[in-house]
Design a binder for these strands. Sequence first.
DNA 1: AATATTTTGGAACAAATGTTCCGGATAGTA
DNA 2: TACTATCCGGAACATTTGTTCCAAAATATT
Lengths: 191, 191
Amino acid sequence: MARKKEFDPEERMEKARDLFWQKGYNATSMEDLVQTMGLNRGSIYDTYGDKHSLYLQCLGNYAAEKLREHKEAALGTSPMEKVENMILSVVEATVNTGKCCMAVNSTFELATVDQSVHSIINNNWKDIVEFFEQLLTDAKEVGEISADKDPRLLAEFIAANFTGLWQTYILSKDKKQVEKLAQFLIDMIKN
Amino acid sequence: MARKKEFDPEERMEKARDLFWQKGYNATSMEDLVQTMGLNRGSIYDTYGDKHSLYLQCLGNYAAEKLREHKEAALGTSPMEKVENMILSVVEATVNTGKCCMAVNSTFELATVDQSVHSIINNNWKDIVEFFEQLLTDAKEVGEISADKDPRLLAEFIAANFTGLWQTYILSKDKKQVEKLAQFLIDMIKN
DNA sequence: AATATTTTGGAACAAATGTTCCGGATAGTA
DNA sequence: TACTATCCGGAACATTTGTTCCAAAATATT
């Protein structure tokens, strides 16, 4: 009946995502995307819609994938150990890849003026905070953190600290320093 | 010998700065700047150079002013009280104006790809951390924080947390929540 | 093999972008 | 007053931008 797509839409979107991730939304041109995705302009518009729509899909894809990765990184025999490993895995991923969080980049570039972007990031943020909250609630029940702690507040605090770690990494480019800060955060939560 | 400038370069630069602050670098066009600054294109180029150069001047102006404001906000009879007031003043400024830190916006939009921007922000960051470090060193000597604490690390931790607070504010738009987080941070530092 | 539907490559477009340039206006100096 | 260095307004420029369109190619079904 008709031709098949000669490319994998998901795979090519990830190429676009990586470019947006690196350069930001406004600094990425359609020409950049054509080159990087290896697709024709028409194919991009047919498959993903316009630039903004493509970006939202990339951001959504990123958010979903990151949430999955975070949950996978929460390994351990106790709740607090899971929290700790999750934090450490974020730091490791950052210093290994040299890339920060696309959602955070997007927060500061677009979320204040773009409602759609705000919505995607906010939902992702909430998911992450809720996951932390659950772990910390568990930790509280097991007695790993003291009874007077508020799991919700603690979860928000940890999530907020990620952003601080990324900022620190961008400016210092110092793996050791970021690791020290992360360890300090973990110590603060524990007692 | 010649005409005088009919405008105050510093004052007009602040108009440009506020626009960059709000929209970011790439999303701000030269046309936007002409409108907002109320100047002719030629006058802008004559006075500040090109767009990028103007941006750097705005960012530098912002950084210097913020550092000054931070130091002014560090009021109190004891070192820790000064630290506390400084943190609270940042939160107040954020929720009152509805604007986050231009330098942080800039970090995530440009600092990874623009060396000049990176340099300005990094220096400003260092200045702020050093100021915190001094206060915390004082606090340690006075016995307001325990002897086993590392003022430098603590200072970096606080600075990093600002970024987290701003991110939280952008996403939640919730004044109360940001204030709660800030108070939580203060409590954590204190004990 | 013929058909129908979709993809592909690239030309084409209008609008927006950053930047330059020039004539006329202006005001301090000689 | 005349001069001249500088300013202002706005036209003009070449690129780059995001987007659309079309003819040719391709393939799954009939």
